[in-house]
Design a binder for these strands. Structure first.
Length: 228
DNA sequence: GTCCAGGGCCTAC
DNA sequence: GTAGGCCATGGA
Protein backbone atom coordinates (compact mmCIF):
# COMPACT_ATOMS: atom_id res chain seq x y z
CA UNK A 1 0.00 0.00 0.00
CA UNK A 2 1.30 3.40 -0.94
CA UNK A 3 0.21 6.40 1.12
CA UNK A 4 0.29 10.09 0.37
CA UNK A 5 1.69 12.71 2.78
CA UNK A 6 -1.56 12.68 4.77
CA UNK A 7 -1.63 8.94 5.18
CA UNK A 8 -4.36 8.28 2.62
CA UNK A 9 -3.91 5.48 0.14
CA UNK A 10 -3.16 6.71 -3.35
CA UNK A 11 -5.05 5.46 -6.40
CA UNK A 12 -2.90 3.46 -8.81
CA UNK A 13 -3.60 5.97 -11.56
CA UNK A 14 -1.88 8.68 -9.50
CA UNK A 15 0.99 6.40 -8.52
CA UNK A 16 1.70 5.41 -12.11
CA UNK A 17 1.51 9.00 -13.25
CA UNK A 18 3.97 10.06 -10.55
CA UNK A 19 6.39 7.27 -11.41
CA UNK A 20 6.24 8.25 -15.07
CA UNK A 21 6.76 11.95 -14.40
CA UNK A 22 9.64 11.28 -12.02
CA UNK A 23 11.42 9.04 -14.50
CA UNK A 24 10.77 11.44 -17.37
CA UNK A 25 12.15 14.41 -15.45
CA UNK A 26 15.21 12.39 -14.52
CA UNK A 27 16.01 10.68 -17.82
CA UNK A 28 14.18 12.69 -20.47
CA UNK A 29 12.72 11.30 -23.71
CA UNK A 30 14.18 7.94 -24.74
CA UNK A 31 13.20 8.08 -28.43
CA UNK A 32 12.30 4.42 -28.70
CA UNK A 33 12.43 2.14 -30.63
CA UNK A 34 15.91 2.70 -32.10
CA UNK A 35 15.39 1.47 -35.68
CA UNK A 36 15.05 2.74 -39.24
CA UNK A 37 11.83 0.91 -40.09
CA UNK A 38 8.93 -0.99 -38.51
CA UNK A 39 10.36 -4.24 -39.88
CA UNK A 40 13.67 -3.53 -38.18
CA UNK A 41 11.76 -2.99 -34.91
CA UNK A 42 10.16 -6.41 -35.33
CA UNK A 43 13.49 -8.10 -36.03
CA UNK A 44 15.03 -6.33 -33.05
CA UNK A 45 12.17 -7.41 -30.78
CA UNK A 46 12.98 -11.05 -31.50
CA UNK A 47 16.74 -10.62 -31.34
CA UNK A 48 16.71 -8.79 -28.02
CA UNK A 49 15.05 -11.64 -26.12
CA UNK A 50 17.11 -12.09 -22.95
CA UNK A 51 19.97 -10.31 -24.68
CA UNK A 52 21.80 -7.02 -24.20
CA UNK A 53 20.80 -4.48 -26.84
CA UNK A 54 24.45 -3.86 -27.63
CA UNK A 55 24.70 -7.39 -29.00
CA UNK A 56 21.48 -7.00 -30.96
CA UNK A 57 22.92 -3.95 -32.71
CA UNK A 58 25.81 -6.04 -33.98
CA UNK A 59 23.43 -8.60 -35.43
CA UNK A 60 21.23 -5.96 -37.07
CA UNK A 61 24.27 -4.19 -38.50
CA UNK A 62 25.39 -7.50 -39.95
CA UNK A 63 22.01 -8.06 -41.54
CA UNK A 64 22.08 -4.56 -43.00
CA UNK A 65 25.44 -5.23 -44.61
CA UNK A 66 23.96 -8.13 -46.56
CA UNK A 67 21.25 -5.99 -48.13
CA UNK A 68 17.99 -4.19 -47.47
CA UNK A 69 16.23 -5.36 -44.34
CA UNK A 70 13.06 -6.96 -45.71
CA UNK A 71 11.12 -10.16 -45.04
CA UNK A 72 12.10 -11.49 -48.47
CA UNK A 73 15.76 -10.85 -47.82
CA UNK A 74 15.69 -12.64 -44.47
CA UNK A 75 13.86 -15.59 -46.02
CA UNK A 76 16.23 -15.79 -48.96
CA UNK A 77 19.26 -16.25 -46.70
CA UNK A 78 20.41 -19.82 -46.18
CA UNK A 79 19.81 -20.66 -42.52
CA UNK A 80 23.53 -21.15 -41.89
CA UNK A 81 24.27 -17.69 -43.25
CA UNK A 82 21.53 -16.17 -41.14
CA UNK A 83 22.84 -17.95 -38.04
CA UNK A 84 26.36 -16.65 -38.59
CA UNK A 85 25.11 -13.12 -39.17
CA UNK A 86 23.04 -12.89 -36.00
CA UNK A 87 25.47 -14.92 -33.89
CA UNK A 88 26.51 -11.91 -31.73
CA UNK A 89 22.96 -11.62 -30.38
CA UNK A 90 23.11 -15.09 -28.81
CA UNK A 91 20.73 -18.08 -29.09
CA UNK A 92 21.52 -17.82 -32.77
CA UNK A 93 20.03 -21.16 -33.80
CA UNK A 94 16.71 -20.48 -32.12
CA UNK A 95 16.55 -16.88 -33.21
CA UNK A 96 17.39 -17.55 -36.85
CA UNK A 97 14.52 -20.03 -37.01
CA UNK A 98 12.25 -17.58 -35.21
CA UNK A 99 13.15 -14.78 -37.63
CA UNK A 100 12.40 -16.86 -40.68
CA UNK A 101 9.20 -18.20 -39.14
CA UNK A 102 8.08 -14.65 -38.46
CA UNK A 103 8.97 -13.52 -41.99
CA UNK A 104 7.10 -16.46 -43.46
CA UNK A 105 4.07 -15.36 -41.45
CA UNK A 106 4.39 -11.82 -42.82
CA UNK A 107 4.61 -13.14 -46.39
CA UNK A 108 1.75 -15.60 -46.11
CA UNK A 109 -0.69 -13.46 -44.11
CA UNK A 110 0.14 -9.96 -45.33
CA UNK A 111 2.08 -10.40 -48.56
CA UNK A 112 5.18 -9.16 -46.76
CA UNK A 113 3.57 -5.74 -46.35
CA UNK A 114 3.47 -4.27 -42.87
CA UNK A 115 1.00 -1.51 -43.90
CA UNK A 116 -1.37 -4.35 -44.80
CA UNK A 117 -1.73 -5.02 -41.05
CA UNK A 118 -3.33 -1.64 -40.47
CA UNK A 119 -6.95 -2.68 -40.71
CA UNK A 120 -6.57 -5.66 -38.38
CA UNK A 121 -7.84 -5.35 -34.81
CA UNK A 122 -5.08 -5.22 -32.22
CA UNK A 123 -6.52 -8.21 -30.35
CA UNK A 124 -6.50 -10.32 -33.51
CA UNK A 125 -2.98 -9.27 -34.45
CA UNK A 126 -1.77 -10.11 -30.97
CA UNK A 127 -3.28 -13.57 -31.23
CA UNK A 128 -1.60 -14.14 -34.57
CA UNK A 129 1.78 -13.06 -33.20
CA UNK A 130 1.43 -15.22 -30.09
CA UNK A 131 0.66 -18.26 -32.24
CA UNK A 132 4.12 -18.03 -33.80
CA UNK A 133 7.00 -20.00 -32.37
CA UNK A 134 9.33 -17.80 -30.39
CA UNK A 135 6.94 -14.87 -29.96
CA UNK A 136 5.63 -14.59 -26.42
CA UNK A 137 3.71 -11.77 -24.74
CA UNK A 138 6.58 -9.32 -24.39
CA UNK A 139 7.83 -9.72 -27.95
CA UNK A 140 4.28 -9.53 -29.33
CA UNK A 141 3.50 -6.38 -27.37
CA UNK A 142 6.81 -4.78 -28.35
CA UNK A 143 5.93 -5.36 -31.99
CA UNK A 144 2.39 -4.05 -31.51
CA UNK A 145 3.50 -0.89 -29.67
CA UNK A 146 6.82 0.02 -31.24
CA UNK A 147 6.44 -1.28 -34.80
CA UNK A 148 2.70 -0.88 -35.33
CA UNK A 149 1.77 1.97 -33.00
CA UNK A 150 -0.90 0.02 -31.13
CA UNK A 151 -1.72 0.98 -27.51
CA UNK A 152 -0.29 -2.10 -25.78
CA UNK A 153 1.82 -1.82 -22.63
CA UNK A 154 5.05 -3.83 -22.72
CA UNK A 155 5.95 -5.64 -19.49
CA UNK A 156 9.45 -6.98 -18.94
CA UNK A 157 11.70 -8.12 -16.11
CA UNK A 158 12.55 -4.49 -15.30
CA UNK A 159 8.86 -3.62 -15.00
CA UNK A 160 8.16 -6.44 -12.57
CA UNK A 161 11.25 -5.58 -10.54
CA UNK A 162 10.32 -1.91 -10.32
CA UNK A 163 6.71 -2.52 -9.32
CA UNK A 164 7.49 -5.27 -6.83
CA UNK A 165 10.21 -3.20 -5.18
CA UNK A 166 7.67 -0.43 -4.64
CA UNK A 167 5.06 -2.77 -3.27
CA UNK A 168 2.80 -2.49 -6.31
CA UNK A 169 2.86 -6.14 -7.33
CA UNK A 170 4.26 -9.49 -6.30
CA UNK A 171 7.74 -10.42 -7.49
CA UNK A 172 6.01 -13.43 -9.02
CA UNK A 173 3.38 -11.28 -10.70
CA UNK A 174 2.01 -12.65 -13.97
CA UNK A 175 2.57 -10.81 -17.23
CA UNK A 176 -1.07 -9.97 -17.88
CA UNK A 177 -1.82 -9.00 -14.28
CA UNK A 178 0.92 -6.42 -14.45
CA UNK A 179 0.02 -5.29 -17.93
CA UNK A 180 -3.57 -4.75 -16.77
CA UNK A 181 -2.34 -2.49 -13.96
CA UNK A 182 -0.93 -0.14 -16.58
CA UNK A 183 -3.78 -0.51 -19.09
CA UNK A 184 -6.42 0.14 -16.42
CA UNK A 185 -4.68 3.07 -14.75
CA UNK A 186 -3.27 5.02 -17.69
CA UNK A 187 -4.83 6.56 -20.78
CA UNK A 188 -4.55 4.25 -23.79
CA UNK A 189 -1.96 6.55 -25.27
CA UNK A 190 0.65 5.12 -27.63
CA UNK A 191 3.16 7.90 -26.99
CA UNK A 192 2.78 7.48 -23.22
CA UNK A 193 3.17 3.70 -23.35
CA UNK A 194 6.16 4.06 -25.65
CA UNK A 195 7.96 6.45 -23.33
CA UNK A 196 6.96 4.77 -20.08
CA UNK A 197 8.31 1.34 -20.98
CA UNK A 198 11.51 2.84 -22.39
CA UNK A 199 11.99 4.83 -19.18
CA UNK A 200 11.44 1.73 -17.04
CA UNK A 201 14.18 -0.04 -19.02
CA UNK A 202 16.47 2.97 -18.68
CA UNK A 203 15.81 3.11 -14.95
CA UNK A 204 16.50 -0.61 -14.68
CA UNK A 205 19.77 -0.36 -16.53
CA UNK A 206 20.98 2.71 -14.68
CA UNK A 207 19.71 2.30 -11.15
CA UNK A 208 17.68 -0.72 -10.29
CA UNK A 209 19.69 -3.68 -11.50
CA UNK A 210 19.34 -7.14 -10.08
CA UNK A 211 22.48 -6.76 -8.00
CA UNK A 212 21.56 -3.26 -6.80
CA UNK A 213 18.29 -3.65 -4.91
CA UNK A 214 19.00 -0.61 -2.74
CA UNK A 215 18.51 1.75 -5.68
CA UNK A 216 21.22 4.11 -4.50
CA UNK A 217 20.68 7.56 -6.05
CA UNK A 218 17.58 6.27 -7.79
CA UNK A 219 15.23 9.04 -9.01
CA UNK A 220 12.38 7.06 -7.45
CA UNK A 221 14.12 6.93 -4.09
CA UNK A 222 12.00 9.71 -2.59
CA UNK A 223 8.93 8.05 -3.99
CA UNK A 224 9.92 4.88 -2.15
CA UNK A 225 9.48 6.49 1.23
CA UNK A 226 5.72 6.12 0.86
CA UNK A 227 6.08 2.36 0.83
CA UNK A 228 4.88 0.95 4.13
C1' DG B 1 35.55 -17.05 -13.04
C1' DT B 2 30.63 -15.33 -12.11
C1' DC B 3 26.65 -12.72 -13.19
C1' DC B 4 23.56 -10.66 -16.22
C1' DA B 5 21.12 -8.95 -20.43
C1' DG B 6 14.81 -4.99 -23.43
C1' DG B 7 12.35 -14.11 -23.23
C1' DG B 8 10.30 -18.22 -24.65
C1' DC B 9 9.73 -23.19 -24.99
C1' DC B 10 9.54 -27.79 -23.18
C1' DT B 11 9.35 -31.18 -19.74
C1' DA B 12 8.39 -33.09 -15.27
C1' DC B 13 5.91 -33.12 -11.16
C1' DG C 1 -0.12 -24.40 -13.25
C1' DT C 2 4.44 -23.86 -12.18
C1' DA C 3 9.34 -24.73 -11.15
C1' DG C 4 13.55 -25.89 -13.57
C1' DG C 5 16.50 -26.60 -17.54
C1' DC C 6 17.84 -25.06 -21.85
C1' DC C 7 19.22 -21.93 -25.46
C1' DA C 8 24.55 -18.60 -26.49
C1' DT C 9 27.10 -14.34 -26.94
C1' DG C 10 29.60 -10.51 -24.87
C1' DG C 11 30.37 -6.94 -21.37
C1' DA C 12 30.98 -5.73 -16.42
Amino acid sequence: MILDQNGYSMPHSIIFQQIFETLYKSFGPQNWWPADSPFEVMIGAILTQNTAWRNVEKAITGLGEIGDLTPEAVLSLPIERLEETIRPSGYFRQKSARLQGFCRFLQEQYGGSIPAMEGVATRDLRGQLLSLNGIGPETADSILLYALGRPMFVVDAYTIRLLSRHGLCSAKGKYHEIQDLFLENLDHDVALYNEFHALIVKHGKEQCRKNNPLCIDCPLKDFCKYVK
